[in-house]
Design a protein around this nucleic acid. Structure first.
Length: 564
RNA sequence: GCACUCGUAGCUCAGCUGGAUAGAGCACCCGCCUUCUAAGCGGGCGGUCUCAGGUUCGAAUCCUGACGGGUGUACCA
């Protein structure tokens, strides 16, 4: 239910009715339960304009306020309007939501094609913990947009093109082409190849020559290259599978895919005068103090920026995207700013296409330094995930009796859930220090808290065994708050999707689960002595809570289990 | 040098389309399992929201500056 939209409309109507000629501001969620559910703070700002006391203005607004959603509007302090929502209206909406697969969340009226570019691992190395953020934030964003009705095209812009591949295939050839087993540990393979490259100049020359050969389409080199890419992609898919990320091979649109378009991109930029030559390279300039965007090197080679421009053109003109979101580390802000500006200037994307860099902070080590692949201190992503599952297993064994299969499922669900939640629950623009304990914690505000709340509810519903029915009757303030929180789901989701902020969802879910836990402690459901109508009502509140938690976590890519 | 970003409780973080006594988790102290899962609930402790100005009826939130951390800054991706 779009609560804010409805309340804002009610306020706008009240303005019109009261003859107030001004654009109302938006209602806010109330800071404290005593202040109602929502508050409207627009009266104070009007005082000067209307030359009237703010409380009097508030009274005029309240007198004209007429909405079935609002049970009571009170004026407080200097002119706050505290809105108390109607339990009758909310109950009806909640019942509707409960019987709807989408929990009452409307599909967009005008869906668009939205491209989400995320994960983008380098094929020369294994994924490490630094790749976690792009992968799971991007996946969450894609899921949210898709759920809201957009046609989402996931794009995994893998790094499969560049100088390292000459080195890798030269080394693979040297080992003997049958030796693909040695690629199983890609990190070790990379290190060994690098060592050969650094120590033997003849080998280095061959590696460089192979780069050219791949790019010019030499069949044998291409075959070797494809072998490396395939195995490397297999590693990634293993991680995606374990992580529960929705990316598939269909979503891969590698750097090499754009290779053939690069010359025409540069040509276009040159023809339009967007790119000019400087020190032999083709550059796009922005300002005195700003380094240019180089689109073609002095030696004729193309760069990262060129590929991104080609990708942008492709996404806007072939895929017809109207929103293109790059989920990439904040360190590349300037790069994207320049690439977007260049694409616009050259008309590679239309004015009506939203280009956004969904920047996220860097994951660092304890010294505040970003993880580096070649420094040995890197944690492989697959190792983190496996460790999470092991620790989850230990925690499970302490707390209950499960059979073997159940242990596997539950450990994976809560272990992976913990890792993803630890990351998603923080604002994405924050840097943070990688910490095993934090990633693998099961206490407090973690995925497990929500998963536990979910399992508790499912247990009650299982025990009851039938579908609850009848009205939802609010018997106390706690139930009212739970009900309001449940109906705030759509507003939260809309904002999270619009701003690409998965942490809005985690905050929401934590609050919801907290309210449910309190409700659970204080308001018995199946116990003796509970009035039958109240029981039916509470069962429904519990049911919708479970469904909302499951859906919300699901959009974040976090699973639930029926029993914990 | 220039640009971007962050600076909130001992630690990790919410809150930042300006609003009423600034919220969680962890840690620490106390209480609650003979009835729906104690991975939980209740209570306590803990803050000059980095600092200084400004805008405003009202600033953790907006603007300017300083300080501190991180990052980027011409042919890597």
């Amino acid at each position: 239910m779009r609560l804010k939209e409805q309340l804002n409309r009610a306020i706008a109507d009240a303005y019109a009715k009261a003859g107030i000629e001004a654009t109302p501001i938006s209602v806010n969620e109330a800071g404290k339960p005593e202040f109602g559910d929502y508050q409207y703070n627009g009266a104070m700002a009007l005082a000067k304009q209307l030359k009237q006391a703010p409380r009097e203005i508030a009274e005029r607004i309240v007198a004209s306020l007429d909405s079935p959603l609002i049970a009571k509007a009170e004026i407080a302090g200097p002119g706050f309007i505290n809105l108390h929502l109607s339990d009758v209206a909310l109950s009806a909406a909640a019942q509707e939501a409960r019987s709807d697969e989408r929990l009452g969340v409307a599909l967009k009226h005008e869906p668009i094609v939205a491209v989400v570019d995320y994960s983008g691992p380098n094929m020369a190395k294994e994924m490490h913990v630094g790749h976690l953020r792009s992968t799971i934030i991007g996946d969450a964003l894609a899921n949210m947009l898709e759920f809201l009705g957009d046609e989402v095209i996931r794009q995994n812009h893998i790094g499969d093109w560049g100088t390292q591949f000459g080195m890798l295939i030269a080394y693979l050839e040297e080992l003997g082409e049958a030796q693909t087993d040695s690629l199983r540990d890609l990190e070790a393979f990379y290190r060994a190849a690098k060592q050969r490259f650094d120590e033997d100049s003849a080998f280095a020359d061959k590696a460089r020559e192979y780069v050219v050969k791949i790019q010019s389409g030499d069949a044998r080199c291409l075959a070797l290259w494809r072998r490396v890419i395939n195995i490397s992609l297999g590693h990634c898919e293993e991680v995606y599978e374990k992580l529960g990320v929705s990316l598939t091979r269909e979503d891969v649109r590698a750097e090499s895919f754009y290779n053939e378009h690069l010359p025409e991109i540069v040509q276009t930029l040159k023809t339009q005068g967007v790119a000019t030559e400087s020190e032999g390279a083709q550059c796009v300039f922005f300002g005195e103090d700003e380094a240019p965007l180089i689109v073609q090197k002095a030696d004729g080679g193309y760069l990262y920026a060129t590929t991104d421009l080609a990708a942008l053109w492709y996404r806007a003109n072939v895929l017809h995207a109207k929103r293109i979101s790059y989920v990439v580390d904040a360190r590349q802000s300037q790069h994207f700013k320049q690439v977007f500006a260049t694409a616009r200037k050259a008309g590679l994307v239309g004015e009506d296409v939203l280009l956004e860099h969904i920047a996220f902070g860097t994951m660092t080590d304890k010294n505040g330094k970003p993880f580096k692949t070649r420094e040995g201190g890197t944690v492989k992503l697959i190792d983190l995930l496996n460790e999470a599952i092991v620790r989850a297993k230990e925690a499970i064994k302490k707390s209950g009796e499960y059979d073997e299969a159940e242990i596997e499922t539950i450990a994976k669900t809560i272990g992976i859930g913990a890792v993803k939640y630890a990351d998603l629950s923080m604002r994405r623009d924050m840097n943070y220090v990688f910490d095993w304990e934090k990633m693998l914690s099961f206490e407090g505000n973690t995925a497990l808290y929500m998963q536990y709340a979910y399992a508790r509810i499912r247990s009650i519903l299982r025990k009851y065994g039938k579908a609850p029915e009848g009205e939802i009757i609010v018997t106390d303030a706690l139930e009212h708050r739970l009900l309001v929180q449940l109906l705030r789901f759509e507003d939260t989701l809309l904002e999270a999707a619009q701003k690409a902020m998965p942490s809005y969802i985690t905050s929401y879910l934590y609050e919801l689960a907290t309210l449910f836990m309190k409700f659970y402690e204080h308001n018995p459901i199946l116990k003796e002595g509970v009035d039958e109508k109240v029981r039916q009502s509470r069962l429904q509140l519990a049911d919708l809570s479970a469904k909302t938690i499951k859906l919300g976590l699901g959009l974040l890519g976090i699973e639930t289990v029926e029993r914990l």
